[in-house]
Write a protein that binds this DNA or RNA. Structure first.
Length: 210
DNA sequence: GTAGGGATACACT
DNA sequence: GTGTATCCCTACT
């Protein structure tokens, strides 16, 4: 509860994001997403992500080229692409690769670390495990919405940093992406093996998932 | 399993 | 301009 992890902002450098979404995605696992709003920091360990490629990925918003909505995806790496969907939910992506490619990584689930009381206020009275166990829940718990569109993740108020505690890279597994029809067979979803905080309820283990 | 919600993109006048 | 199919979801039954 009294952790100080997110208060000392040491954001990952832009280089981290300036490569393929398939390289960035697994490397985001175990990193910590932080958001400071009105002086209060909420943060959580990233435990589930999905890679979305550019023009050659039919499931990506970037597939049919740049539009007013997906503009940020085609901008420089290390920025936030936030979109609204299903009439009620915000989802956050991290822009990857070179400017103009239009690829990114969807943040799908966090293990809450700091600001859990605030996350609860935003989400309603739910189990910690369910505060951010899905892309819409994650955005709601972290206070991410249209105001976060295009923010530079290498600085406050929204950034990603190393986990001061675990440090080491997390063991991960990959599975097909969720909630898409096209290119559904591609194993572009990455999870921290055995994490209880991923979406779809159950912890996933390599033996049962692959 | 499915209701709900609203923005978006694209086909058409 | 209008019509409508779709959507990287969640919460509920």
């Amino acid at each position: 509860m009294s952790q100080q992890v997110g208060h000392l902002a040491v954001p990952l450098p832009r280089d981290f994001y300036a490569r393929s979404a398939l390289e960035v995605a697994p490397r985001l696992l175990g990193k910590v997403l932080c958001h400071r709003r009105r002086g209060t920091v909420t943060s959580g360990r990233i435990v589930e992500v999905e890679a979305y490629m550019g023009a050659d990925d039919p499931a990506s918003h970037a597939h049919r080229g740049m539009t007013p909505r997906n503009r940020a995806m085609f901008g420089p790496p290390g920025h936030a692409y936030v979109y609204f969907t299903y009439g009620s939910h915000w989802c956050m992506n991290v822009v990857t690769d070179r400017q103009g490619v239009g690829s990114g990584v969807l943040l799908r689930a966090l293990e809450p670390l700091e600001g859990i009381a605030l996350m609860r206020r935003r989400r309603g009275r739910v189990e910690v495990r369910e505060l951010a166990s899905g892309p819409g829940k994650l955005a709601e718990a972290m206070g991410i919405d249209r105001g976060s569109y295009g923010l530079d993740l290498t600085q406050e108020p929204l950034w990603i940093q190393e986990d001061a505690e675990t440090g080491a890279a997390a063991a991960w597994i990959s599975t097909p992406r969720i909630g898409i029809r096209l290119a559904a067979e591609r194993p572009y979803r990455f999870l921290v093996a055995g994490s209880a905080f991923v979406s779809r309820g159950r912890p996933a283990f390599p033996s049962r998932t692959l």
